[in-house]
Computed example of a mutant assay.
Amino acid sequence: MGLREVNAARTRELILDAALRLFLERGYDATRMEEVAEAAGVGTSTLYRYFPTKDLLVLEPLALRGQMATELRGRPAGEPLDVALGHAVVALLATPRAGVERLRQLTTVVEGAETLQVRLMEEFRRERAGLEAAVAQRLGRPPDDLYCVATARLATLVLELVSDRLGSLPDDPAAAEQQLLALTREVMAGLQAEPPVLPRYEG
């Protein structure tokens, strides 16, 4: 990494640290971008160059960026679909993001701002749609094929179930990753041992 990239990464971290501190102290909605720039010690134009909108100060570190679909497309063609999807789920969970402490802070900010919750849900839906398309491509079916859509959504359901069952993570990143992956394996094994019942209407 060159000097310019190092300086850019440092500036980005300064901005994120300042923004999170203000959001936690004052609330997301009450904090203005000009206040973030001042707290970070950068000009407003610099702030907007790195983060064009305020919501990106929270959402960018949490961005999913299509890791599940990318991982699925890269799996061997002859690999069973359930195994390939398992790797896709783990690939998303294992992707380095913010540290444990910053994730806690980001979660607190999101929980206090309805607009951020909506934007995060949109991010999740985009990730899910990308996985649906990747499943359809792998099976040679249309993107709106019901089997492909349902299969992809079951994979993303694993993420939701893991999130619902996830307690506090240890501060050590390696230990946190191991705990997260262990819980993911546990959830997937439970669903495989006793698959959910699909609704059926006989009226």
Rank of each mutant, 00 (worst) to 15 (best):
A91T: 02
E35F: 00
F51G: 05
V89S: 08
V90H: 05
D82C: 13
R32E: 14
A39W: 08
L81Q: 01
Q67N: 13
P76H: 10
V42G: 09
E60K: 08
G41A: 10
L81G: 05
P52M: 04
V90G: 05
L57I: 02
R73F: 01
V42S: 04
Y50C: 09
M33R: 11
T53K: 11
V89R: 07
L47A: 06
L59W: 13
L57F: 03
A88M: 04
R65D: 15
P80M: 06
R73I: 04
G66T: 01
A40W: 04
V83K: 11
L59G: 07
R75Y: 02
M68N: 05
G86R: 06
E60A: 14
A39Q: 10
D55L: 06
A39S: 14
M68G: 02
P52D: 07
E34P: 01
E71W: 03
E34I: 15
G66M: 05
L85N: 04
L59K: 00
A84W: 08
P76L: 14
T70F: 13
E71C: 14
V42H: 05
P76N: 14
Y50R: 11
L85H: 00
H87T: 03
A40R: 07
L81D: 07
T46V: 15
S45Y: 10
L62F: 11
L72D: 06
Y50K: 09
L56H: 03
P76F: 12
T44P: 12
V42W: 07
A37P: 06
G78S: 15
A88S: 14
L47M: 05
A30W: 08
V42K: 08
T44L: 15
G74H: 08
R75L: 09
A63Q: 03
